[in-house]
């Protein structure tokens, strides 16, 4: 089992490396090089050459890649085109904001989703199950911006309960802060939970067709115990996987949500960077997002391995 886990982590590291190549090469094919963008109108052939030499941009691509990778590893993310601020300083607060948002979403949606998913599986075919199934199906079928738009329409425009835009001022009280965050939070929780509820239910019902569930029924085991003890423990692997995948999905979910609510997070920073062609900034942000994603997926796989009783208790 240890070997499987180590194996999975090693594969993850390789994947991370391939991802970094993709991000680097992907952003390198953006039109115009950094020197031209930075110097803009003032560029002369001499100043361009000088800038390139200074930043190592005249080096072959693979050497640039290695030095970029070194920079990433040591926290030196380079210098943004905009005003020459270091990217670390730009990202610093933004990353915190995004993590804060994601953490609250995770803390609320994971237990909620698993509970609702189990509930639906416990009473299949009843109205509880039907409502949950149809509700979540509708929610996963619509784009995040649709849900966000509806939230704005109902909660901000019609009811005037919440502000349509999330601004966090440093001196806001916790309650004010939560009010400000409510819109993006609710949107993300809905989006992420819908998927997790469905997958939890499906994971349990998948196990429910096993002969050992029929045996449990024939032993007179009550419904609740069948779901919570007999089915859940066998479905844990897939469920953990779904949870991790959806937390990873938060990564792309925040892109749209931060844009709609003008939330000052990392994704917003990256979209801005894309629009202003701020190459080093986009590279750094993309690497952080993709890195988080890969790490979460590895964690999911490791959890699945660890939850398998056959692997945990060898013969």
């Amino acid at each position: 089992m240890q070997r499987m886990v180590i194996n999975r982590i090693l594969i993850g590291i390789v994947t991370l490396f391939v991802v970094s190549i993709l991000v680097f090469v992907g952003t390198s094919i953006l039109p115009g090089d950094v020197a031209e963008i930075v110097l803009g109108q003032a560029a002369t052939p001499e100043s361009l050459a000088a800038y390139r030499a200074e930043r190592g941009l005249d080096q072959p691509l693979y050497i640039q890649f290695i030095s970029w990778l070194q920079g990433m590893a040591t926290g030196d993310l380079g210098i943004s085109k905009a005003g020459g601020a270091t990217i670390s300083s730009l990202i610093d607060g933004r990353l915190g904001n995004t993590m804060y948002l994601a953490a609250i979403v995770a803390v609320i949606s994971v237990p909620l989703s698993i509970a609702l998913g189990l509930l639906a599986a416990m009473y299949p075919g009843t109205w509880i199950d039907r409502v949950l199934t149809f509700g979540t199906l509708s929610l996963i079928s619509v784009p995040e911006f649709f849900i966000a738009t509806f939230m704005v329409l109902i909660l901000a425009v019609n009811l005037h309960w919440l502000p349509a835009i999330s601004r966090i001022s440093p001196d806001a009280t916790f309650l004010e802060e939560m009010r400000g965050l409510a819109m993006p939070l609710i949107t993300l929780i809905i989006v992420v939970s819908a998927q997790m509820i469905r997958m939890t239910r499906a994971g349990i019902l998948n196990v429910m067709n096993s002969p050992y569930i029929e045996m449990a029924i024939l032993k007179g085991v009550p419904r609740k115990r069948i779901i919570l003890r007999h089915a859940f423990f066998n479905a844990i692997g897939p469920i953990v996987n779904v949870v991790a995948l959806n937390l990873a999905y938060l990564v792309s979910g925040v892109v749209v949500v931060e844009t709609i609510f003008a939330y000052p997070g990392l994704a917003k920073l990256m979209i801005d960077g894309v629009q202003t062609r701020d190459l080093p900034l986009v590279q750094a942000c993309a690497m952080i997002f993709c890195g988080t994603y890969v790490v979460l997926i590895i964690l999911a796989d490791v959890a699945a391995i660890l939850s398998n009783p056959r692997l945990r208790n060898p013969k």
Binding site: Y212, M215, L218
Partner: peptide, 20 residues
């Protein structure tokens, strides 16, 4: 079930819950 009348299935390998 399991109290006054008890059941033994054909394939024990499939009938025992692997996680318990």
């Amino acid at each position: 079930r399991g109290n006054r009348v008890a059941y033994l299935a054909q394939s024990a390998a499939a009938t025992f819950n692997p996680a318990i």
